[in-house]
Design a protein around this nucleic acid. Structure first.
Lengths: 227, 227
DNA sequence: CAAGATTAGAACAACAATAGAACAAAAAAA
DNA sequence: TTTTTTTGTTCTATTGTTGTTCTAATCTTG
């Protein structure tokens, strides 16, 4: 996350500190003037880096000036949560993602996330239990809109329901496959299924967990030698 | 671990104490000026040692200034237990814990650890797969020598083999119960089993994971309609 | 003294930052 | 509408900065 050069940091700090000074988002030229540069191209080079770092909104070929991303503003408001990933809500098969009100940030170890933008969801339900993803687990999702077959994705179905499943995409249908032998794979038209991210990490707390959850209670007599 | 020379310690202290003074991470030259050296090369010689000691981020030929590693910052915040947890090795059922040479420290989220001393192990084997603990997962273990029935523990058997299992302790025997229906519970005399810690957290990376691991591959024909 | 630590200084390669030109899309003006 | 201006984008060449390596000299410590 902190792979900014010193100049990029300087520009970012400038944008954060002088946010109020500009009535409208500044253009490249205005920024050049404000920071003493003579070439728009040079400034763009720096801004591009900030866009890649998700700190400035990508303008998508419109001309509306340089605007800081929400992430950058959050980061300024709460430097503590720097590097943390947003915990955006919980996902239960068959419902929209249940967003939480106060977005909090979790410090996620490098090992279970990627360089790209990620977010965290809490899992509800057992549709992936045979993959070791249980009710109450956190999952780290890399934000992207495409996936390879066999990956586990957050899929939005008919723009209404969100679910965490294995995905298999074929020309004329998309399969969403649970990891629970009691459940069936779901068939959809490709255009019904919108990928919202791909699973890159998972974690679980055993601190407030009931000893034997999830229907996988280890029955003591399973293989228990007779006396 | 800390085989630093005097000068190296001095520079490290300087970096720790003056962290706030530098708006951006200092360059070698700035550090020279701040500490009264005249040669970048000399400063680099010292910084190199700190990089080797994992106390300064390796810049990988980028130019983003001298930045302390997370480990160094944690160490400063709490010299006793350095924020991150020690990753001490891997545990496979039926073998001693396989210690690794260079103990590294992982930053573990608050949510999956406790206030008490913890350490991290990598899991090998599928003996707990039905509890959602798969081969290759990391587990966070709270260091203690007793457990309640139904907790998952790191148990040392006959002072030789280590294993991760559910525990059930009775006056005259101790059961170590896997979460894998293909495996059997193990019976021991209480004095044969030494508890080395209790599971408090777990995490998993899907980044370098083969799509369908662990014998729980989602068979695409489970519920898949015929074409 | 001898070994190791520290330093200055030069030289180098990789990277970063810049200006400037040219282009395309959007917005504004005619 | 058409024309003009603004704005973001891309590209190249140039310059400056930074980390790195090396050598030799100096300092410290047992």
């Amino acid at each position: 996350m902190h792979n900014l050069t010193r100049k990029q940091q300087e520009i970012l700090d400038f944008l954060l500190n002088n946010q109020a000074c500009f009535p409208h988002p500044p253009t490249l030229e205005e920024l050049c003037a404000a920071m003493g540069l003579k070439s728009r191209g040079s400034m763009h080079h720096q801004i591009k880096a900030l866009i890649d770092a998700q700190l400035v909104e990508p303008p998508e070929r419109k001309q509306r000036g340089i605007r800081l991303s929400q992430q950058a503003k959050d980061w300024a408001a709460d430097p503590q949560s720097a590097g943390g990933l947003p915990f955006v809500g919980s996902i239960a098969a068959g419902r929209p993602i249940e967003a939480i009100e106060n977005i909090s940030y979790l410090a996620i170890p490098e090992q279970i996330k990627t360089d790209k933008p990620c977010y965290v969801l809490k899992v509800k339900g057992d549709s992936m239990c045979e993959e070791g993803i249980l009710d109450g687990d956190w999952v780290v999702i890399e934000q992207r809109s495409h996936a390879r077959n066999g990956e586990i994705v957050v899929a939005l179905i008919d723009k209404a329901e969100a679910t965490l499943k294995f995905i298999e995409q074929y020309p004329h249908e998309t399969l969403l496959i649970p990891a629970n032998s009691k459940m069936q794979a779901l068939r959809y038209q490709p255009q019904q299924v919108e990928i919202q991210g791909v699973l890159v990490g998972q974690m679980r707390s055993y601190i407030h967990r009931t000893p034997n959850p999830g229907g996988f209670a280890p029955s003591a007599d399973a293989g228990r030698p007779g006396d």
